Amino acid sequence: MAQHHEQGAYARGIRKVRTAPIQQVGPGHRNSYILEPGLWEEHDPFLFLAEDWFRRGSFDLHPHRGIETVTYVMEGKLEHFDTKTNQIDYLLPGDAQWMTAGRGVIHKEDPAPGETVHSLQLWVNLPRAHKMTEPYYQNLRSADMAVRSEPGATIRVFSGSSGKAKAGTRNIVPVTMVEFTLEPGAAVKQELPGAYNGFLFVLEGEGRFGRDGTKGETRSVLFLDSAEGHERSEIELAAVTKLRALLYAGQPLREPVVAQGPFVMNTYEEIVQAYEDYRNGKFA
Score class of each variant (00 low, 15 high):
residue 1 M to L: 08
residue 2 A to P: 00
residue 4 H to S: 14
residue 5 H to Q: 13
residue 9 A to C: 13
residue 11 A to C: 06
residue 17 V to F: 04
residue 30 R to N: 00
residue 31 N to W: 01
residue 36 E to C: 03
residue 41 E to H: 13
residue 42 E to G: 05
residue 43 H to A: 06
residue 45 P to Y: 06
residue 46 F to M: 02
residue 49 L to H: 01
residue 49 L to A: 04
residue 50 A to K: 00
residue 50 A to L: 13
residue 56 R to G: 07
residue 58 S to V: 03
residue 60 D to M: 09
residue 60 D to P: 12
residue 69 T to E: 07
residue 71 T to H: 08
residue 72 Y to D: 00
residue 73 V to D: 12
residue 75 E to T: 02
residue 75 E to M: 00
residue 84 K to H: 09
residue 86 N to I: 01
residue 89 D to V: 05
residue 92 L to M: 13
residue 93 P to F: 04
residue 94 G to K: 09
residue 95 D to V: 03
residue 96 A to E: 05
residue 96 A to M: 14
residue 97 Q to F: 05
residue 97 Q to E: 15
residue 99 M to N: 08
residue 104 G to S: 00
residue 106 I to C: 10
residue 108 K to T: 08
residue 110 D to Q: 02
residue 112 A to N: 02
residue 113 P to L: 11
residue 114 G to I: 03
residue 115 E to K: 00
residue 117 V to R: 01
residue 118 H to K: 00
residue 119 S to A: 15
residue 129 A to K: 14
residue 139 N to L: 04
residue 142 S to A: 15
residue 143 A to Y: 05
residue 144 D to E: 15
residue 144 D to T: 00
residue 144 D to C: 03
residue 148 R to M: 13
residue 148 R to P: 01
residue 149 S to M: 07
residue 152 G to A: 12
residue 152 G to H: 08
residue 154 T to D: 11
residue 155 I to K: 03
residue 158 F to L: 15
residue 159 S to P: 05
residue 160 G to P: 12
residue 170 R to H: 14
residue 173 V to G: 03
residue 173 V to K: 08
residue 175 V to T: 14
residue 176 T to A: 07
residue 178 V to I: 14
residue 181 T to S: 15
residue 182 L to N: 08
residue 184 P to Q: 07
residue 186 A to Y: 09
residue 186 A to F: 04
residue 188 V to T: 10
residue 190 Q to L: 14
residue 191 E to M: 08
residue 192 L to R: 06
residue 195 A to T: 12
residue 195 A to S: 13
residue 198 G to S: 09
residue 199 F to V: 10
residue 206 E to K: 15
residue 208 R to D: 04
residue 208 R to I: 05
residue 209 F to H: 09
residue 211 R to N: 12
residue 212 D to V: 00
residue 213 G to Y: 10
residue 216 G to N: 06
residue 219 R to A: 07
residue 220 S to P: 07
residue 224 L to C: 09
residue 230 H to M: 11
residue 232 R to S: 13
residue 234 E to A: 13
residue 234 E to S: 11
residue 235 I to R: 06
residue 237 L to C: 06
residue 238 A to Q: 15
residue 239 A to L: 07
residue 241 T to V: 07
residue 244 R to E: 05
residue 244 R to G: 01
residue 248 Y to P: 01
residue 248 Y to Q: 09
residue 249 A to S: 13
residue 253 L to Q: 10
residue 254 R to P: 03
residue 254 R to Y: 14
residue 255 E to W: 10
residue 262 P to N: 04
residue 263 F to G: 01
residue 268 Y to V: 11
residue 269 E to C: 02
residue 278 Y to Q: 12
residue 279 R to T: 05
residue 281 G to Y: 10
